[in-house]
């Protein structure tokens, strides 16, 4: 195996998996909350929140990365505060997780929001007449009925996080072993004379992970629909 792919490449694959899993898991609760707000609540600033959530989807990733750098960099307003608390994001794998989380957030919110919109609020009314407290209506009626949408959100978010390149490389650079994710590694290999072979192998791994994620989520969705 080790001559098929060098240790540096393996590191990039593992780092990408770590970054994508952490980014997806950490942003899921927030994505559910924001999707619920956008789907079920009308409040001043509703459309503004929606636009803000979608911003990373429509802006060039480089711009998002740059904005992250000036906000969360050690000299930035938030990054400075975090540094005093001993947390540094810029040029660290945690920064890569933040960048990919922000880039995949709109995709997760969109998928989960659709789920909320597809749950018939009349079923929630029925649960209320049967005495279910609000929180229990959410947990025992709304959430189970929208699990497929949440699963779709997780899959989309994870796939996007695995592939995120522009914002990540701008915010945390491309340091092998520290911030070099799978796409950054492919990019780096393509600019070295003998890198095409390993690059192609990384491309295959990347495709295998993405297809595997989609297949796993579909299998799960089928099991839940039973």
């Amino acid at each position: 195996m080790s001559d098929w792919l060098g240790p540096q490449e393996w590191q990039a694959v593992l780092l990408s998996l770590q970054v994508a899993l952490v980014a997806t898991a950490a942003s899921l609760p927030l994505a559910v909350a924001v999707a619920w707000l956008l789907a079920r609540r009308r409040f001043p600033g509703h459309d503004l929140l929606s636009a803000l959530v979608h911003l990373p989807l429509v802006m060039p990733p480089v711009v998002t990365g740059y904005l992250l750098l000036i906000t969360f960099g050690t000299q930035g307003p938030v990054g400075g505060l975090l540094k005093q608390m001993g947390i540094v994001l810029a040029f660290r794998w945690t920064g890569a997780a933040l960048a990919t989380a922000i880039m995949s957030f709109p995709l997760m919110v969109r998928a989960i929001r659709l789920g909320f919109e597809n749950v018939d609020p009349r079923l929630e009314q029925a649960a209320a007449t049967l005495g279910a407290p609000r929180a229990m209506i959410f947990l025992s009626v709304t959430l189970p009925l929208m699990l497929p949408a949440i699963l779709a959100g997780i899959t989309l978010g994870f796939a996007k996080a695995m592939g995120e390149f522009g914002a990540t490389i701008t915010f945390v650079s491309n340091i092998p072993g520290q911030t070099q994710t799978l796409p950054s590694a492919i990019y780096a290999l393509l600019s070295t004379p003998s890198g095409e072979g390993p690059a192609m192998r990384l491309v295959l791994i990347s495709a295998a992970i993405s297809i595997g994620a989609v297949l796993a989520s579909e299998a799960l969705a089928r099991r839940m629909a039973r």
Binding site: R122, L123, Q125, A126, A127, T129, L130, P144, L145
Partner: peptide, 12 residues
């Protein structure tokens, strides 16, 4: 207790 026209049973 409310019996709705469309039953509204929980499908899951």
């Amino acid at each position: 207790g409310y019996v709705f026209q469309d039953a509204r049973l929980f499908p899951h």
